[in-house]
Amino acid sequence: MSAASTGQPDLRLDTADPRLVLLLALGDDELVLGHRHSHWTGVAPHLEEDLAFSSIAQDEIGHAVVWYGLASELTGHDPDALGLGRAPHEYRNAILVERENGDWGYSIARQYLYDTADDVRLSALADSAWTALAQATGAIRREERYHLMHARTWLDRLAHGPVEARRRVTAGLSAALRDALGLFEPLPGEAALVDEAILPTSHADLLQRWLDLVAADLERVGLERVLEEGTSLADADFVPTSSGQMEAPAALSAPHLERRADRWEPVGEFSGHGGRWGRHSEAFTAVWEELTGTYRAHPGARW
């Protein structure tokens, strides 16, 4: 009988296996952002966007199930328990995905930054030495094309839109950018994953690939300055989640971005710990409570 069947969110995982950490980072990002996206259902600016965000939410949660399915093969735990049965500090999602939706400008900015990062990451994982992982990217990337298309269409539309739309998407990008760098925080045990080509490209290299794409898009719409302004803000307000049992490491500090010669580059290193180590912002507590509420109230319930 698993711990989750008692209704306590206390599924403990042996995260000494870096493959599991990778799967949890992938799955938790998709699950939490999928849940945030679903908050647009019924209240998006128009019907097509209701459908779009609902559909993207459903896809992301479906992708989380794929990653938890692989994690289930590694650990023997039920995928539902993996997704919904952990305490807050056991979640490995980046801080970016747990933030509140804010306004439409922020939601679009975040979706754009995230899905561009997801694309870069999945492209790399398609060549993973772990066959099951590489195979799963095939179906997921086929679906993610539509998410990226949605995000880029809206980025362009808002950036070219009336002054208010441009102002809001600019503010959204500035607010999301620093958190977005947290998507590239090195994973605990990353060196082993890279050595074994399970993660064929390190997060440091993925960050540069992502930055090249984002910089090109922002340049196209004349918002390149966000790269500088967005990362010159004070470090994000990470707090250890209340139940965290970490030895109070420093909060994650990300590199800042600089234009050098003809490309933007991250300067400096990541230090401290963020979402990949289970350290979250206060926004996570609310989303975790909602996300896992039904599971905690009715352990083992099935549709």
């Binding site: 097509e48 459908l51 779009a52 559909s55 479906g62 679906e143 539509y146 298309m149 949605h150």
Partner: peptide, 9 residues
């Protein structure tokens, strides 16, 4: 083509 999204994924 109006939207890549519809009533089912």
């Amino acid at each position: 083509a109006d939207s890549p999204f519809g009533p089912t994924p």
